[in-house]
Design a protein around this nucleic acid. Structure first.
Length: 452
RNA sequence: GGCGCGAUAGCAAAAUGGUUAUGCAGCGGCCUGCAAAGCCGUAGACGCCAGUUCGAUUCUGGCUCGCGCCUCCA
């Protein structure tokens, strides 16, 4: 039994699929006008783990993560770059996929683009107009009438009376009500546009997710996820659109992951305090990044710093060291083992990866004591369920280190020096290697090395 | 101004109404020529004040501090 903290009810609930054995999940993905940062990595990795865990738990998972490829920021960036929107967005989609891949993120079932679903958006907007949840304003924009949906605010816990629209951003005078939000923007000069019953224009931000989720998953589906910053207004507006148009509940469970922070402040594009995945990967192994992210619970804030990544790196090394040299066969998890069960209980409890990872360390400790192949297999197979320890330990521990020294030759020189009791020379060689980032370990089977 | 979240040992981070989280760092051993890795042992914690309870880090209330949302944002 999997339990999920549902943002809608603010409670942990037992997951019950709409269709037996099936999970339909929609996650809000990226707006593709720049490289992804660590906050984006967190979303991708967390929902990757969620989908993996449902998969392992015997569900068939249909996982949709959209791509927003039309919006103000994209238009502005394309003008700034003197680059077509098509070329800009495709470039960043490629970059995003490259980042996802090295981070061990399995591709979603589908990654639909907003621009490929304009038709669905238009028909949904038409429906909202017919049902009098939306109206055509005098400037040609279509707005959603927030007060027409009496459950507005149920996700974010906000009440219409308490919202302070216009406090910091000027209110569009075309709106009938200051809380209304745009569904369709009439075309402006030199902006991309599509034909619609209301003339040329382009969609507002929120409508794409309502249109695409219902197109791929139906009006009513199991899980809708995304970053905490999307809870309001984006997800609240999605609910308003979808539920008003379809007259049924949109999603049963809403999952929101916490922010990545820098010095206790939210990492965000607008604050400019973000690190791109690309930058971080210059210094750290992608699996270290993944491990770092999964070592905190997905709903907690996660402070980013190099020191924390270093810490994660050392911890992950410990796991790899424990299975190094053990003859590992690829095997399925033996769920009858008590530690496997402990791992499962942690994961079933709202995807508690920190607790699950602590079980991996318990296993590592046992393996270090008795070199049990059985337990090494268990460790590796359990870690694999959350996308960790999938590489050969040697590959991870040695890395793609580039030095001009002949490591093996130096090791045998040192071996000879040791045999001659020339410890000064032996230590000189060891220091030389260490200066180059190579750590030696003398084992009963000879000397092995790893990168620092 | 409204709404919400959080405060755990030197750092990071979970669980839990009474019993070892876990990783790093520390201390003492073992191993080693010395290290490294590993093993064993050990110390160290639940922001403050009340209340409920036989017993609270865990539940309730208040306070303090931090963060987030109310605006584009994962």
């Amino acid at each position: 039994m999997i339990k999920i903290y549902n943002s809608l009810s603010k409670n942990k609930e037992t997951f019950k699929p709409i269709q037996k054995g099936q999970v339909n999940m929609y996650v809000c993905g990226m707006t593709v006008y720049d490289l992804c940062h660590i906050g984006h990595a967190r979303v991708m990795i967390i929902f990757d783990v969620v989908r993996r865990w449902f998969d392992i738990s015997g569900y068939s998972v249909n996982y949709i993560r959209n791509i927003t490829d039309i919006d103000d920021k994209i238009i502005n960036r394309s003008i700034q770059n003197n680059e077509t929107i098509q070329s800009l967005t495709q470039r960043y989609i490629n970059e995003m996929n490259a980042d996802a891949k090295v981070l061990g993120v399995i591709s979603p079932s589908r990654e639909p683009k907003a621009t490929e679903h304009i038709k669905e958006m238009i028909s949904m907007i038409q429906r909202l107009i017919e049902k009098q949840h939306a109206y055509l304003a005098k400037n040609g924009d279509i707005f959603y009438s927030v007060r027409s949906f009496n459950e507005y605010g149920k996700l974010s816990g906000k009440s219409i009376e308490e919202l302070r629209a216009g406090e910091r951003v000027d209110i569009d005078q075309n709106k009938h009500d200051e809380l209304d939000f745009v569904l369709w923007k009439s075309a402006k000069l030199n902006e991309p546009s599509w034909d619609s019953p209301w003339g040329k224009g382009r969609p507002g931000w929120h409508i794409e997710c309502s249109a695409m989720s219902s197109h791929y998953l139906g009006h009513h589906f199991d899980i809708h996820g995304g970053g905490q910053d999307l809870q309001f207004p984006h997800h609240e507006n999605e609910i308003a659109q979808s539920e008003a148009a379809h007259e049924c509940k949109m999603a049963n469970y809403w999952m929101h992951n916490g922010f990545v922070r820098i010095d206790d402040e939210k990492m965000s594009k607008s604050l400019g305090n973000f690190f791109t995945i690309r930058t971080v990967l210059e210094k750290f192994d992608p699996e270290v990044v993944r491990f770092f992210i999964l070592r905190a619970h997905y709903r907690s804030p996660l402070n980013y710093s190099d020191a924390h990544l270093d810490d994660a790196k050392i911890a992950l090394q410990r796991l790899y060291v424990s299975i190094r040299g053990v003859n590992i066969k690829h095997s399925d998890v033996d769920w009858s083992h008590p530690l496997a069960n402990k791992f499962k209980e942690a994961m079933d409890d709202d995807f508690n990866t920190p607790e699950a990872i602590s079980v991996l360390f318990e296993l590592a400790n046992e393996i270090n004591k008795n070199k049990s192949v059985l337990l090494a297999n268990l460790l590796k197979s359990l870690a694999k369920t959350i996308g960790l320890l999938e590489r050969d330990p040697e590959t991870f521990l040695k890395g793609d280190i580039k030095i001009s020294l002949d490591i093996d030759a130096l090791i045998s020189q040192r071996h000879e020096a040791k045999a001659n009791k020339d410890f000064k020379e032996a230590d000189r060689i060891r220091s030389l290697l260490l200066e180059n980032g190579i750590v030696l370990e003398d084992t009963s089977h000879g000397t092995i090395w790893r990168k620092e």
